[in-house]
């Protein structure tokens, strides 16, 4: 077992766990987005580590990383648009106050 690979994967696991904690525990929409960013960052670390230590000759691994980075940027843009619309309509982005979204 390559210790560098294990180190990188544990870093990814820790970022995923911290992000999950953030998504479940925060009440503010912008803070929720920060949690999602951390979860995606955990995925990024894993993808780069897999490319480097398992298939350094295949650049499809780096392609995956570029796609995840695109997803991160889009998540941020769409999230901020929703936050802006919500702030205009209700004057707050607190998710505790968004009870009307419950099905």
């Amino acid at each position: 077992m390559n210790p560098d690979l294990l180190l990188a994967l544990i870093t990814g696991a820790a970022l995923f766990g911290i992000g999950l904690y953030g998504v479940l525990s925060q009440t503010n929409l912008v803070m929720l987005m920060m949690g999602i960013e951390l979860i995606l960052a955990g995925a990024l670390v894993n993808l780069v580590a897999f490319w480097r230590f398992l298939h350094a000759d295949s650049y499809a691994g780096q392609m995956f990383v570029l796609i995840v980075m695109t997803v991160m940027a889009l998540e941020m843009a769409v999230g901020f648009a929703v936050a802006l619309a919500r702030f205009r309509a209700r004057g707050s982005v607190e998710m505790e106050e968004a009870q009307e979204l419950k099905g």
Partner: peptide
Amino acid sequence: DMSHQKRLSMIAGLGAVMLVSAIAA
């Protein structure tokens, strides 16, 4: 304070870290 259900979130987060780390190891 802008958080809720801290205990559940902490358990879920730690559980995820341990599970994923075990798979990695």
